[in-house]
Design a protein around this nucleic acid. Structure first.
Lengths: 216, 216
DNA sequence: TAGATTGTTAATCGATTAACAATC
DNA sequence: TAGATTGTTAATCGATTAACAATC
């Protein structure tokens, strides 16, 4: 009953299911069994059935899953059936990269404003989105029903700005700054720590090199 | 003995330990117990001790861990004590954002080349790094001892280019394209799927909204 | 020596996989 | 009805936490 109790491991897999189902739709495939899907995705069929059953019976015995139906159900779970207004705080290269990525908009995530503390950027437009002064932040959030803020600024400022955003009513923070945010429980925080990702790559690369040396 | 057997869960936590230890060093703290560190990092002391012991006894009974020593040991494990040459394939906004991020260089990840199939970009420089034609890729990789390639290009091209890179000797791929790469086992692949990250945020945001509605 | 804290074993918890009855 | 495949329970596996002996 309680949807909160679904494990993070399961939730993390949902976007990948969603992606594969979208591709199946593009290929004109109408139905698929957990077994077929498991082979395409390189996971077990059992895991797929377990995962999906956390959310209700999306399949049908003897038939499998209807691709379009399942795609839509997962989309609804992921909230991509609704529009979400997003702002970007920190309009450097990374902020601009996100503003330029139109695929997010296709999923309902609409960047409606960009901000920076560097006044040289004010008035500059990225894909039609004006970069504004941080002083306009409070007003902008209240007037434009902003739910999500992407934090693409140095970690020294991230904590302070995050608290500010929350006080203005932002509900979720997509945090690209290399710092842990400590915010009220009801605020959603999703971290993208690029340097940690690169270090994991480097860890595995180093192990591969160790292995090679061991063999020679 | 076999370092391959260390679980992904543990490895994923290493960069975060590394970050906290770096901050402790900046604060001039010389030693720390698993208990103190656990409170700062919001994990259990037991987990810290278990994690670190996968790699050997970095601590000392009755004393704790020497911050600088532990920092260096974890850095070595993560391979940030060595220089790694990296190229960026796809010189759009995201590729340029990565090229501009000097913190990677501080950790030994040096961007030595950028590539794109759009010839309008050729010759353009990003932080002194020239954007080159894809035709120069093979030669560049061989001549410049390139280990890592960041893939910041559309998913339609990612698979083909990844295979190309591997054939030229690239050892690790940092994949920002929204597609699963199927490469030989010895090739390290680290995925950064921004849209999946945003969907997880959206999932949690939607659950928060459900909760709120339930209460009202 | 007494106190502190690790390294490590044992207990618990949670997630994944296997198996199969239910049912389309 | 027979075959296919889900939904779901049970078994297994792995990761986290607790406990404590070893030792600095």
């Amino acid at each position: 009953m309680n949807k909160d109790s679904i494990s993070r491991a399961v939730i993390k897999r949902l976007p990948r299911y969603y992606r594969y189902l979208g591709e199946l739709m593009e290929d004109g495939i109408e139905r698929i069994s957990s077994n077929d899907l498991s082979q395409r995705m390189n996971v077990t069929a059992s895991q797929i059935r377990q995962d999906l059953n956390n959310f209700g019976g999306f399949g049908q015995q003897g038939y499998g899953y209807n691709v379009e139906h399942l795609y839509q159900e997962i989309g609804r779970l992921l909230g991509v059936d609704k529009k979400h207004n997003m702002i970007i705080i920190g309009s450097g290269h990374l902020g601009q990269a996100i503003a330029n990525y139109t695929n997010f908009e296709r999923r309902g995530f609409v960047v409606t404003g960009m901000f920076d503390k560097n006044e040289n950027l004010y008035g500059k437009e990225v894909r039609g989105i004006k970069i504004l002064s941080m002083e306009l932040l409070k007003d902008f959030i209240k007037k434009n029903d902003i739910e999500i803020a992407a934090l693409t600024l140095p970690k020294t400022e991230a904590i302070k700005v995050a608290e500010e955003l929350v006080s203005y009513g932002v509900k979720a923070i997509w945090n690209f700054a290399h710092v842990d945010l400590d915010l009220p429980r009801e605020i959603v925080v999703e971290n993208v720590h690029l340097s940690e990702s690169l270090m994991m790559l480097s860890y595995n690369l180093t192990r591969q090199e160790d292995k090679k040396k061991g063999v020679m």
